[in-house]
Design a protein around this nucleic acid. Structure first.
Lengths: 345, 345
DNA sequence: AACGAAAACGCAAACGATTGCATCAAATTT
DNA sequence: AAATTTGATGCAATCGTTTGCGTTTTCGTT
């Protein structure tokens, strides 16, 4: 039982030919006799030969591996994106190496370093909430290193961004609430340094304005963590202290929306009769809770798939990154469920 | 602007020394003058030198990378496990390369092949539902290749298994239902080739028997897919056709439990008054739905962390795999919520 | 019979880093 | 002053694979 894998050299030695011949025989290069090819392939199969991808990477300066940097794995939307990434990468013969930053800037930076050491062919990035400057990305982009950002995308030169239409999603959700007769609509917003938060706020504002409602800045409340507990507390506070009680909540994400629903229930308010609620992301549980939660669906799988396709096309020179100037935007879809439908007909 | 990364050779050339000297200087080997060390390190910093991990891997036959093979990423429990894996791997300086099988046997096999090509230092595996024979693992284990299985673990020689106490979890859940006065308890079981399913069935049976209730095989219904839709249909069917109506459901997972709850509601039955429900896994949504779902919590993060620690200890020879004969079992915890509490005091 | 061409294969360098061993100079000892 | 030690560095092989170019052998052609 030989320890370690059989190599080309082992085959060469056994067959009394050179490594070059074995290499070429295995790849059906011209200039090798059929007889030799047969013998080489037979022995390779017998020895269970597996090409050493590391050696190949060294030779070609290509690892056929892409690095994914994501804030957290335990997150419905992100895990869906990962799934899309993995599918496309697998089907095109690439490996995926994954790291989560836990929303930490330092970890984002150090992960990039290790991945660079590992000769990654390109990056897929959604940056952390702590990240406020982007030199660590800009430098790489300047050098022509392939990076595609998704969901949380930076506003820096040469960045290729894949995102969902957050503006439209928010606009649709709020318009829907207004049409249902809700008037004083609170937006439980996300961290303001994230583009997605800004876009959703913009969609909220425009929807309000377009329907002749004025936007009071006190209506936009930041929920930085985005957990249900946080939003439950914040919402409870609002319900207790506001002069004019709100009658609807549009959450920056589903957890925030659920927190608001809970706080309403705690306060004796009924959803959707007294208060309307709409979330964002369409997590699995939206249809399982009671009342079911209306939400803006983000195509996470498609986003991961699309971002990966673009990245691999760039890596394989099928696409020139300098030709892409606009962000790639995927459509959102408002899924209306019970939590926001007042009229019972 | 030189394309590509600076290498040791670049530094050597510029400083008129040999690569060996540079290599040793960077690692503070004895026998290099302080002066040279200083110059080398300075230039390295200036050129933004990053060691080429691929070259290192080739030399040392070690990649500092572990491969994770998992049925699906978009899954609360598995994503939690991944998180645990990633944390430990990161803190110990290893990369994680991830692949999902989508429950396909062929994909499991081919993923293993590519990872082996990539000179992975070891595997972390939870096998697919389709997997019914384990030669592709056995062969590797025989060769002394480090593999640690988690959650879905095989019953084969030399396998190191990390699992939760499925038996105990199921036993506790069912005992709880019985104590709450439920009598005709249906188990919505998982695929029977998975050890976890078997263990949960065993826990269910023992709990029933220990409480003097006889187990009718018709009470154990397989839900192979484990989705809420599937279980909703199956449960509806049961409620329609059974001579004796069931008054409780113990789900192999939370989705199945939710499906059962929905079917009960559809049939005009109240949870928990008429029917008790307990799930398994304690997904995030358990506390968000109404009534909140009792569930058996599995320590996913700890499982990932533990499995990774063991794997890395084996890789680094701190642990002898032949010394481990028993599976490592992590405790489950029954979280009682409203869906299974009949008495209102 | 002689020549040229094609067929089949080998040599050796390269990818980037590590490391046992040799080398060479300077410093120290005798 | 000669011998020996010490300190600082270089050489070259190695990991497994690829590939440009050179070499050898085998034919076929005239």
């Amino acid at each position: 039982m030989k320890i370690g894998q059989a190599t080309i050299k082992d085959i060469a030695r056994e067959l009394n030919v050179s490594s070059s011949t074995v290499s070429r025989a295995l790849k059906d290069y011209p200039g090798i006799s059929d007889e030799t090819k047969r013998k080489v392939k037979e022995l390779a199969a017998k020895l269970n030969y597996r090409p050493n991808a590391i050696a190949l990477s060294l030779r070609k300066s290509r690892s056929f591996t892409i690095g994914v940097i994501i804030p957290e794995v335990v997150h419905f939307f992100f895990s869906t994106v990962i799934s899309g990434i993995e599918e496309v990468a697998y089907s095109r013969g690439y490996n995926v190496i994954l790291t989560q930053t836990n929303e930490k800037f330092d970890r984002e930076r150090s992960s990039i370093e290790t991945m660079l050491s590992n000769q990654i062919d390109g990056f897929l990035v959604s940056y952390s909430k702590e990240t406020k400057e982007f030199d660590h990305f800009s430098n790489l982009l300047e050098q022509g290193y392939p990076i595609v950002f998704f969901d949380r995308v930076p506003d820096i030169p040469k960045a290729i961004n894949v995102m969902v239409d957050d503006y439209r999603g928010a606009y649709d959700a709020v318009s829907h609430l207004i049409r249902q007769g809700y008037r004083r609509i609170i937006h439980l917003a996300g961290p303001k340094n994230l583009t997605i938060s800004k876009e959703r706020i913009r969609g909220y504002k425009d929807a309000m304005n377009d329907h002749g409602m004025q936007v009071d800045d006190s209506l936009i409340v930041e929920c930085p963590k985005g957990t249900d507990d946080e939003s439950r507390k914040i919402t409870a506070e609002i319900l207790r202290n506001s002069a004019q009680k709100p009658d609807a909540f549009f959450g920056n994400n589903d957890m925030a929306a659920v927190g608001a629903m809970m706080a309403c229930r705690d306060a004796g308010l009924k959803v959707p009769e007294d208060v309307g609620v709409v979330g964002f992301s369409n997590w699995q549980f939206c249809s399982m809770i009671d009342p079911s939660l209306s939400s803006v669906a983000q195509p996470g799988f498609q986003m991961g798939a699309k971002a990966t396709e673009i990245l691999l096309d760039i890596i394989e020179k099928k696409l020139d990154p300098d030709q892409i100037h606009e962000p790639i935007t995927l459509p959102t879809e408002l899924l209306v469920r019970k939590s926001s439908v007042r009229t019972k007909n």
